[in-house]
Design a binder for these strands. Structure first.
Length: 395
RNA sequence: GGGCGGUUCGUAUAGCGGCAAUUACAUCGCGCUGUAGACGCGACGGCCUUUCGGCCUCCGGGGGUUCGAGUCCCUCACCGCCCA
């Protein structure tokens, strides 16, 4: 959907929904109203092969710019990724090898273009220009920044206080990101709030190259399913490539307090509709069912989202068996229950199997198993179940 | 280059020489329910037909002292801080 002229209300939503801060707001607003086609930059470092819905917030924002007729400029930080950014980390980031970066990128585009309009996106690799920068040029850039600004950044200050190492290299990261803005002549740059410092660097550097300072739009950081910061290393992420059922279940597990935030940041549901759902439905669970469906349909389509919802309700609300259960074939013979559980990789060790049996966590044909030494012959079918979520059918 | 400190479960931590090793978070199971949420309880190295038991492996690597070593000594590796 492209409109030649963006309506005022569209602009308002663009500048506020899921947005934490805009610099310089007045300037950006008048640019948006002027019908100029803006170059909107988004840089990503290929540090992980998966895009989660938190990372997707900024991609959807870029998509919104595209839908209003602006140009998306997507920068792959193949160079900066090798260096490692520390904006949102408590420690230095591992520097990625070229090989890892290539590996990560393979699936990255496929995922990003589930969100972005490919035809209206320019893609660049920042090694193209950063690799060639000479020392003199770097010195000119470095001269624009004071070290005190860098060390007073919250994360950096904390690490220094805690006695952790802060490398010289890290201080140079903003220079690189800022130079990217020059290279692509960015009018606007998008990023998370954790990127504030790096985003501002572009504004500082561009005038040196006779360019107007870019505007900055910072999107809100999204909490993970457990309410903490969404981070792959904490396992609280919802990846956009997650299977519909998985995606649905993960959304259902978020704290009630995050429902509205998820709705605003992770769906394209209209604000009016969100308002309606969150006020009219009294039970947060029902709100979440709709939310989960909205998110799943964004990446898997309406039909899959519906099916995921039905499966979820059947399995968890009504306690029915899942429709699809993994099957394993065994050679006929006698098996001890604990051995069988290990054999089917439902558990990783016999000790674990024994513990689970003691805690009534194992069911055979829907009946709790009581005895570790329970013997099954491999002749008939059995349904093994661990907890509420792991099933295997033995044939 | 000099001085000091660190390296223990996925992460962060505790550990006067008797330890399969503390606590928190995460994880897993059970109960309850409104869901895989919240709350409560429990488990969280492996193997064993003696299971309020037995055996094996484990605290950065190597060596030593000792009946006995995360715990003491030496050494190597890595990391950090301060001084230059």
């Amino acid at each position: 959907m492209i409109t030649k002229e963006s309506s005022d209300s569209q602009i308002v939503e663009l500048l506020t929904r899921g947005v934490e801060d805009v610099i310089d707001k007045a300037n950006l607003e008048s640019l948006l109203k002027s019908k100029n086609k803006l170059r909107v930059k988004l840089g990503i470092d290929p540090t992980s092969p998966n895009i989660h819905i938190g990372r997707a917030v900024v991609l959807w924002k870029l998509r919104a710019f595209q839908d209003m007729g602006h140009k998306a400029v997507f920068i792959v930080g193949d160079f900066t990724g090798q260096v490692g950014d520390t904006s949102d980390k408590d420690s230095e980031r591992p520097q990625l090898s070229e090989k890892q970066i290539k590996e990560n990128l393979k699936t990255y585009f496929e995922q990003a273009f589930k969100i972005l309009d490919k035809k209206k996106t320019e893609v660049y690799y920042n090694s193209k220009w950063l690799k060639k920068l000479g020392f003199l040029e770097i010195v000119r850039l470095a001269n624009l920044f004071g070290l005190h600004e860098f060390i007073s950044r919250e994360v950096i200050a904390r690490r220094m206080k805690e006695g952790k190492r802060v490398s010289f290299l890290e201080a140079m990261y903003p220079l690189m990101q800022g130079y990217d803005s020059v290279a692509v002549k960015a009018d606007v740059e998008l990023g998370g709030t954790d990127q504030r410092f790096n985003l501002l660097a572009g504004r500082t550097i561009q005038p040196l190259y006779k360019q107007a300072s870019q505007n900055i739009l910072m999107t809100t950081l999204m909490e993970g399913t457990d309410g903490r910061k969404m981070s792959s290393s904490w396992g609280n992420v919802i990846n956009i490539t997650d299977e519909p059922n998985m995606m649905f279940g993960k959304v259902m597990s978020i704290p009630d307090s995050l429902i509205k935030k998820y709705y605003l940041l992770a769906t394209r549901t209209s604000i009016v509709e969100i308002e309606r759902v969150t006020t009219e439905l009294a039970n947060p669970r029902d709100q979440k069912l709709l939310l989960a469906q909205a998110i799943a349909s964004l990446y898997h389509g309406n039909k899959s989202a519906m099916l995921a919802k039905d499966a979820f309700v059947a399995q968890f609300a009504k306690g029915q068996l899942p429709t699809e259960i993994q099957e394993k074939k065994l050679t006929p013979g006698k098996y001890k229950l604990s051995d069988l559980l290990v054999l089917t990789s439902l558990v990783t060790s016999k000790s674990e199997a024994r513990r689970l049996i003691e805690q009534k966590g194992i069911k055979v044909n829907q009946q709790p198993a009581v005895d570790t030494e329970y013997i099954l012959d491999g002749k008939q079918e059995y349904l093994l179940q661990v907890g509420k979520r792991k099933f295997v059918k033995i044939k």
